[in-house]
Simulated scan of single mutants.
Amino acid sequence: MQQFSLLDLSPVPEGKTTADALANTVALAQLAENTGYHRYWLAEHHNMPGIASAATSVVIGHVAGATKTIRVGAGGVMLPNHAPLIIAEQFGTLATLYPDRIDLGLGRAPGTDMKTARALRRHMAPEESFPQDVQELIAYLGAGPTPVQAVPGKGTQVPIWILGSSLYGAQLAAQLGLPYAFASHFAPAMLPDALATYRQSFQPSEFLERPYVMMAAGVCAADTDSQAHYLRTSQQLAFARLIAGKPGKLPHPVHDLPAQVAPHVLAQVNAALGCSATGEPDTLRAQLRALTDTYQPDELMVTGMIHDHTARLRSFEIAAQVLTDLRAP
C-alpha cells in the first residue's frame, strides 16, 4: 500500500440537518489533510435523507476551497445520470479552480432507485452506453478535437477512475488503461476476482503504464474495542434499514443491535460490511494489515459513518496513525 485515502458520504445524523452534515464534511476533510490522507472523495447518491452529497461536484468544490493540498474528488459520479459534456464542464471547472487536486471516479450504477433515476435522466436509454460515455468524457477533458468543446474542461486532463463492485468495471478499466477502485466497503463478494481480472487484463495507456488498484474498507476506531463496536452500530442499523427499503438519517448507536435487527438481515448487513476494521489502534492495525497483505492494493480508501461528529473525527485520526505505520516505504 503506497497511499491511504478517505471516502465521505456526508452522513446526516438523526437530530441534525444537511447543513450540519456538510459542515462536518469540511471539518473531516481538514483533519484528513492534516493527518496524511492522500485523497478525499465524495459520492453521488439521490433521494436518501441520510446522505448530503447528492450535488457531488458542488460539495467537492466546497471541500477543495476549505483545504489546501489534499486531492478532492468523486467516488464517484454515477455517469448514467448525466450527459458526459456536463460532467466535463463541472470537473473541468473544478480542475481550473484547484489545479492538480481534482479526481473523477465514474460509476455505472444510477446510485438510487429507478423512480429517482427517471427523474434525473428524464429519458432512460435501454442500451448499455457506459463505455461510450466514459470515452466521450475522456475526449472532452483531453486536448484533441471534439465536435463540441467543454469550456472549462478541454485540456484539463482530469484523472479518471473506473469504480466497480463486479467484473464489469474491472474489465473496462483494464481495457482503457485506467486506475480501478473497488467498492469493497459495501460489496466485497467479487473483490478477489475483480482485482485478478483487472491486473491480468490491464492494457497500458497514455494515462497509466501499469495497473493501479484502490480498494475500500470500512473503519470504526476508538480508544477501546467495545467503544468502537458500539459506535459502529449506527452504520449497521442504517444499512439494515436501507435493506428493508426504509432509508433515513444515520441512527444513534445502540447497545442491543440484535434485538432491533432480524438475524437474517443482520447477517446480510455484516456480510456486506465485512471488508472492515473495528477496534482500538492495535486491533485496527492487525485487521487492516490482514486486508492489505491479502489484496495488495496500491491504495486503501477507508470510510465509516459514526453518529457523533467528535467520535468520527477521532476514528479517522486513529486510522491515519495506523495507516501511516502500514504504508510501504
Score class of each variant (00 low, 15 high):
I306A: 06
E299T: 02
G304T: 06
D293V: 09
Q287C: 00
E280N: 15
V322E: 05
E299I: 04
V322S: 05
A286N: 06
V302Y: 08
L323P: 07
G304P: 06
Y295W: 15
L323C: 14
L300C: 00
R289W: 04
T294P: 09
H307K: 02
H307V: 05
Y295M: 11
M305K: 11
I318A: 00
A320C: 11
E299L: 03
L284V: 07
P297A: 05
T283V: 11
R314E: 13
T310Y: 03
I318Q: 00
M305P: 00
A320V: 12
Q296I: 01
L284K: 06
E280G: 11
S315R: 01
A311R: 07
L291C: 03
L313Y: 02
L313T: 03
Q321R: 11
T303M: 13
L323R: 11
L313R: 07
Q296S: 06
D282N: 11
Q287T: 03
Q296E: 08
R314T: 14
L284R: 04
M305G: 03
A290H: 14
A286H: 10
A286F: 00
D282M: 12
Q321W: 00
G304V: 08
V322W: 08
F316L: 12
M305I: 09
L291H: 12
P297Q: 07
D293N: 14
H309I: 02
R312M: 13
R285K: 13
I318T: 05
Y295N: 10
R285C: 00
V302T: 12
R314Q: 15
L284Y: 07
I306T: 09
T303A: 12
R312N: 07
T294Q: 15
E317T: 10
F316R: 01
T292V: 15
L300D: 01
L284I: 10
L300V: 04
D308F: 02
E317Q: 15
P281I: 10
H307P: 06
T310I: 13
T292N: 09
T310S: 13
S315Y: 01
L313H: 01
L291E: 03
G304A: 05
D293F: 07
V322G: 05
Q287M: 04
T294I: 04
H309T: 12
M305A: 14
R289H: 12
S315Q: 01
H307F: 09
G304N: 03
V302F: 06
L291Y: 03
E280Q: 15
D282H: 11
I318Y: 04
A290D: 15
D293H: 12
D282G: 02
Y295G: 05
L323I: 11
Q296R: 13
I306M: 06
T310K: 14
E280M: 09
V322M: 04
P281S: 08
M305N: 14
D282L: 13
I318V: 08
Q321L: 02
L288A: 07
T283P: 13
T310M: 11
P281G: 10
D308V: 00
L288N: 08
L291F: 05
E299K: 04
T310N: 13
L323M: 15
F316V: 11
A286T: 08
T310L: 14
R314G: 05
